[in-house]
Every structure is written in C-alpha cells, then in structure tokens.
C-alpha cells in the first residue's frame, strides 16, 4: 500500500483576541491507500479540525499535509479545488444537502462543479446507496437515514480516493446508523475511509483507531 494522506507536525491554532487557542498540536499521521481509519476522542478534542485539514477545508497553522506525497501548501488553488472535487468525498453528521435540489441534483453537484458529464453516474451512486427510487425527492421529503445515504452517494459520485466521514451516524437512530455504517464499510474496500466517531462499537471494522485528546494523538489501536 502507498501513502495516501500524510500529516507532519500539523498544528491548528485560532486567535481569540490576545489569546491563541490550539486545537491540534503537532499532529503526525500517515494514512495508507485503502485503509479504514477511525478517529475517536471526546468533544472538543480536535477530531473535526483534523478531518477538515485532511479534507482541505481548513489549513494548518504550521506543519504539512501531503496527498500522495504532494505537499498541499505547494499546490495551486486550482489543484486544491481539483483534489476537493476528485480526490476527497465528504460525509457530514448533519448530511448538509441543498434543500432546494432533488436527491439526484444534490449527488450531481460535485460533477457539475467539475464540469464532468453526468451520464449514469448519479443514478449509479444513488443505486449503490439503495435510493434509485428517490431520485427526484428533495431532502425535506426524505428520512434522516435516506438523506445521509444521499450524502454518501454525493461523496462517492466522483469515485474519490478518500472518504472523510464526520460522525456519519451521529444524527441517526441506532438502527439507521447501523445501516449507514454497513454502507460505508461496503465502500471502504475501494477507498481510503477516515471516520470520526464517538462510538467504540462503530470502529470494529476499522484497520486502525486513532485516539485524540486535547489536540494530540494519544494512541493508535491496530485492529
């Protein structure tokens, strides 16, 4: 396996007036291609910040982030956007679908922004998550579990190398959460999956569990 994501000495601090708050502190992490990584830690420990930095939504105050060995800081804006479109797929706890667009249109968003032809990819992605019959339904007409499946289809539609899932079952009941998790597990064979979770039970399919506290990685459990 090759290196997919590498974080070296990554620190993320925020200035609040005269005070500087460090959310991530000198974090080092290497994720290999095809790995399923779970990140666990209490609220405020820096899990989401770590995921945002991996997903190029946030930039570290210091340290380097490399995708397939290439330093993100040295990439052009266009290259970074291209990675956001084609390399990384996001799944959020609150689904984050556009309410005015149908399920199919929400899934098609990354393809539209990448100027790719839609062809059958949108239908395929929705079929993969079991929603081929809900193409034209808007988020408000879908259950929470269905909305999260649409979000997963949106994350998968560009066939990215990395899926970053931030507590993907956090807003769902236990049964629906289990369905979503098994869906993520089923796609994890083809992609590098990084999932933030509070639940130990959800980590059992992971290759590694990264434990984080106060912005520092305090341990790694190999499974």
């Amino acid at each position: 396996m090759s290196d997919m994501l590498t974080l070296s000495g990554v620190t993320r601090s925020y200035d609040l007036g005269n005070e500087s708050i460090t959310i991530l502190d000198e974090t080092n992490l290497n994720i290999e291609s095809g790995e399923f990584i779970s990140i666990m830690g209490p609220s405020g420990s820096g899990k989401t910040t770590l995921l945002n930095i991996m997903g190029l939504l946030d930039t570290p105050t210091t340290g380097t982030v490399c995708i397939r060995g290439e330093d993100v800081a040295k990439m052009s804006k266009k290259e970074i956007i291209n990675h956001k479109r084609r390399t990384i797929g996001h799944v959020f706890q609150q689904f984050h679908l556009i309410p005015t667009l149908s399920a199919a249109e929400n899934v098609a968003l990354p393809m539209m922004f990448a100027n790719d032809k839609l062809d059958h990819h949108v239908e395929d992605a929705l079929e993969l998550v079991g929603l081929s019959h809900r193409l034209n339904h808007k988020p408000g007409e879908l259950s929470g579990g269905e909305q999260q499946r649409v979000a997963i289809a949106r994350a998968l539609v560009m066939r990215p190398d990395i899926i970053l899932a931030d507590e993907p079952t956090g807003a769902l009941d236990q049964k629906t959460g289990a369905t979503i998790l098994s869906l993520l597990e089923s796609v994890s064979d083809d992609v590098t999956l990084v999932m933030v979770t509070h639940s130990q039970a959800l980590t059992k399919s992971s290759d590694r569990v990264i434990h984080i506290e106060d912005g520092k990685i305090i341990g790694v459990t190999e499974i």
Binding site: K78, H96, P99, P110
Partner: peptide
C-alpha cells in the same frame, strides 16, 4: 451561507 459552504466543500470554485 450553509448552502454556499456545502458547495465550496464539494468543489465549487470562487468563479462558480
């Protein structure tokens, strides 16, 4: 703002 944030997260460029 949330919708725009979502679009930026899934790859919308400044131009778009």
């Amino acid at each position: 703002t949330k919708e725009i944030g979502i679009m930026r997260a899934v790859g919308a460029s400044d131009g778009q």
